[in-house]
Write a protein that binds this DNA or RNA. Structure first.
Lengths: 206, 206
DNA sequence: TAGATTGTTAATCGATTAACAATC
DNA sequence: TAGATTGTTAATCGATTAACAATC
């Protein structure tokens, strides 16, 4: 392991490598090369080797990488060789979809609670969860020691909800609300806004 | 307008600026500065000025930028001063959520059809749309001249669906399936995978 | 005018690529 | 051994920042 600080842009590629490797493993493939992995994920072989080598010598000259070994290492590096409990705030359509999404389990995440501030929704079931009142969010999350949350609330309430999450001790927020939020430096935020993603592509269309 | 090719990393920030400006406009703010906008979106003032200046001189020394003027310019640059029809493939929970999402309209997008390959779903209503058979996707999309699509299908069918979309003439794909897909260079792809985003943050947690 | 803020230049900083010795 | 592929270095390329003249 390298003691230097690893650039975030490299960290951002590791989950993509991991995802591709897990898929290869499911297909029964045992080893791969930077060349082959690069073709799968659309990244140059040189860059993949450089990225991986930041963390150790995980490959073998002549044969490449053992997929199961590299998966283990990436899961270790990314801290997903454990389960992370995640809270959802906002029980609209998107909150529902995330609560029922089957794709978290084998990636290291487990949804454990869902909140909404609409009295008409509190108490209703979403999949296996009962919608809880956002008023109880800080207590519930702090008590449960949850460190990650997904926000599927309107832009108008996103900052207030983010403030509550920070207050509750959450350290990583996946924000589906179409607005930039301000949080302390110690809290990480990732944004998912389909319109923003689409607009990044329309630039190239005519 | 600059004739040189603008780096994609700059294009990627423009929708974020636009989103913040539209929010400011809704709040009745008339002008802003690179400093103020930067505080909203978490980007340095110098970078914002540099990004914007790639496309023209849209600001005024001493007073900053007219928000409505800058919004117009960014919408023009990003090609969203028009409506783009978008197809959804995959009528699961995520497809449903996107079909019912209210946040596309004022960002330049309109969902116009939704497909699924499950015979039990074809013919059912999702919001205002009737689910159509994926078997008819190529014809329907080609005839309608749709250039953008959102894929909310399982990873196992994502590549096959992407191939169909390409065949139908789609030029931009927003891929919610947790897998990298291969498309011709002329087709743009953006990825949304909550697990990948969460894993990018767990690296920093302990 | 005085203060504020742009657009732009030059300097710095960081990321990617190409190439190849090492070695499995 | 011969072929393949890593890990790493140096070179290239690209992005960000700092600074400031221009000017509203």
């Amino acid at each position: 392991m390298n003691a230097d600080k690893i650039p975030d842009i490299i960290i951002g590629r590791l989950p993509v490598y991991l995802r591709a490797l897990q898929r290869m493993a499911e297909n029964g493939v045992k080893t791969t090369s930077s060349q082959e992995l690069g073709e799968h994920v659309g990244i140059s072989a040189a860059q993949i080797r450089k990225d991986i080598s930041q963390f150790g010598e995980f490959g073998k000259q002549g044969t490449g990488y053992s997929i199961s070994f590299l998966i283990d290492k990436l899961r270790e590096i990314l801290n997903v060789n454990r389960m992370w409990d995640v809270a959802i705030v906002g029980a609209g359509d998107m909150g529902h979809a995330l609560a029922r999404y089957q794709g978290f389990t084998n990636r290291g995440f487990r949804v454990v609670m869902i909140f909404d501030n609409d009295p008409a929704k509190v108490g209703l079931k979403v999949g296996e969860y009962t919608i809880e009142d956002t008023a109880k969010l800080v207590d519930r999350i702090r008590t449960s020691k949850i460190k990650m949350a997904m926000m599927t609330v309107p832009a108008s309430t996103a900052q207030a909800v983010a403030d509550k999450l920070v207050q509750a001790g959450v350290k990583a927020i996946l924000n589906y609300a179409p607005i930039s939020i301000n949080v302390p430096e110690s809290v990480h935020v990732q944004y998912i806004d389909p319109s923003t993603h689409l607009q990044r592509m329309t630039y190239y269309l005519d």
